[in-house]
Design a protein around this nucleic acid. Structure first.
Lengths: 120, 120
DNA sequence: CAAACGTATGAATGATTGTTCATATGTTAT
DNA sequence: ATAACATATGAACAATCATTCATACGTTTG
């Protein structure tokens, strides 16, 4: 007995083949799309967004951020690690203190764009 | 016996109070920041990014997307629901078929900005 | 050098979430 | 009306992830 799953059934009967073919050709590599999703995933957490927003105004040390947001030093440090790995923030060491700042202006632009959408 | 947690210890000894106070004043409401994170969270998934990218080029029905990305109809439908809830895509019903397209240009701009960062 | 301090990190845990499977809803065609 | 079909949805499971706790690392101070 022949069984069809949804994909096959759809594939033969309902798909707009020309459009699909055209779109397929213009899709970026899977790897690029994966990286892009990973980037947005980093922005997709309240704590990290707050950290980034705080750094809009000034360079801050880990303790500053922890007090500012009411978090433990450990939690902040873990998240800064994630942000650093995505090259969204950069550290500057001064003695035992580490100051963090935004890595570049993409961060500002992206967050500003997101805010626009949210504020609509 | 008095015990200190990390926050309190840091708060009294290492925090740059003036900077922290100034930054605190300029932080958006927690609710706004939460919404912003929720928005980015929607972009933070390969499948949803692929769906959005596919819709860059053309309006597509659920089956088109499913075949295009090699996913089940159900998985696509679930994700379209999420995208619709965030007002990133909008549906157009035509008989039993539902065509989806990008809701506005913020989507394009945001994804383009993200790609720039990834491609650096 | 030893103690205090700021930061980083590994393991564990609880919560969130994407996919699958089964099924329901609404539309078209016979 | 009944069958076929496109889409939507609810429950369940597996995987991912943010926080906490304990502790380690590197720097400064007495």
């Amino acid at each position: 007995m022949t069984e069809y799953n949804d994909i096959e059934r759809c594939g033969f009967l309902c798909v707009h083949e020309d459009t699909v073919r055209q779109v397929t050709e213009q899709m970026p590599d899977d790897e690029k799309l994966y990286d892009l999703a990973e980037l947005f995933k980093v922005f997709g957490d309240s704590t990290r967004i707050k950290i980034l927003y705080a750094l809009f105004e000034a360079e801050l040390c880990v303790c500053d951020i922890a007090q500012l947001l009411g978090l433990t030093q450990s939690a902040v440090s873990h998240q800064l690690r994630v942000l650093k790995a995505s090259r969204l923030v950069k550290p500057r060491k001064d003695g035992k203190t580490v100051f963090y700042s935004l890595a570049d202006d993409h961060v500002r632009t992206l967050i500003a764009q997101g805010m626009e959408h949210v504020n609509e």
